[in-house]
């Protein structure tokens, strides 16, 4: 488990990361969400030891993280890139060796990964000669070359076509299935919704929301949509119920307690019939807009 504990980073007068805390459990896929400048990249760089920490700390398996721990992490930086003019096989071996693999172990591992990404016959090609999608595949191969204990990926899905997104998601799931914690940042909320066990939402350097996608959706007041046979204007007279909108036979309501649904149903039946009464679950995007406002 990786724990981020009141992490602080300042750039001059600006506090880019302001006492951020969250944890990524073993086998847990955690999505890091937030707008530009929210502090996602800065936090990830501090976790990886690439940027010095101005306050707080990072714990790995219950104790302060060390350089040796980080060497066992797979990392994909924000504006990713490997050596453009070096053959992809060579640079995967190089990175594997820097992360502690033997030369032959790194070669074997690089070969397996390139074959997996259907790049086996292109291992001698320079990175810059590959398509952008294939460059991304090499980049993820670089992140997982040394069989990492933890994955920290900054925007791993940006710029990928749908097939490549699925491929990347499969790779990440294989790691979480084996108990490896995965932390990745993304702007694509639908993807985060689909993949993540946990979301951490950042805004202006602070954690503004944290939890599963379902929990986040229910953070806001639960709303209901009522569709009646006749005009629904009568809902305005009900005590304890806030009316958001009425349009003919359709009303959007905010209830103060769940039991209020019974009261509304009874009243609606008395007034001429009910077509529909449903809970309106906000989209993740709605919640995101709500919490980062």
């Amino acid at each position: 488990m990786l724990e981020v504990d009141h992490l602080v980073r300042r750039f001059g007068e600006i506090t880019a990361v302001d006492a951020i805390s969250f944890a990524v459990g073993d086998g847990q896929m955690t999505g890091f969400v937030g707008g530009n400048g929210a502090g996602k990249t800065t936090t990830m760089r501090m976790i990886m030891g690439v940027l010095s920490i101005h306050g707080g700390g990072v714990q790995w398996r219950g104790r302060p993280i060390t350089a040796a721990d980080r060497r066992g992490f797979g990392y994909m930086p924000e504006e990713r890139g490997l050596y453009p003019k070096q053959p992809i096989m060579d640079q995967l071996i190089y990175l594997g060796r820097l992360q502690g693999l033997s030369a032959s172990g790194a070669r074997q591992r690089a070969k397996t990964l390139l074959e997996r990404f259907n790049l086996g016959d292109r291992h001698k090609d320079k990175l810059e000669s590959l398509s952008l999608g294939n460059q991304q595949r090499v980049q993820i191969a670089a992140a997982v070359i040394s069989d990492p204990q933890m994955l920290v990926l900054d925007e791993p899905f940006s710029g990928l076509d749908p097939a490549a997104v699925d491929e990347m998601a499969d790779v990440l799931r294989e790691f979480t299935d084996r108990g490896v914690p995965v932390l990745f940042s993304s702007h694509q909320l639908d993807l985060v919704d689909r993949l993540c066990d946990q979301l951490v939402v950042l805004s202006a350097g602070r954690v503004v929301a944290r939890g599963t996608a379902a929990e986040l959706r229910r953070r806001g007041p639960v709303r209901h949509r009522l569709i009646t046979a006749g005009d629904a204007g009568w809902v305005r007279g009900l005590p304890g119920i806030e009316v958001i909108d009425v349009d003919g036979g359709t009303a959007l309501l905010e209830l103060s307690e769940p039991a209020d649904t019974d009261r509304i149903l009874t009243e609606a039946l008395r007034r001429g019939g009910v077509r529909e009464l449903t809970e309106v679950v906000p989209t993740l995007a709605d919640t995101y807009r709500e919490v980062t406002r």
Partner: peptide, 8 residues
């Protein structure tokens, strides 16, 4: 930015 991977 490969330096970030190297530095980690």
């Amino acid at each position: 930015r490969i330096v970030e991977i190297l530095a980690s």
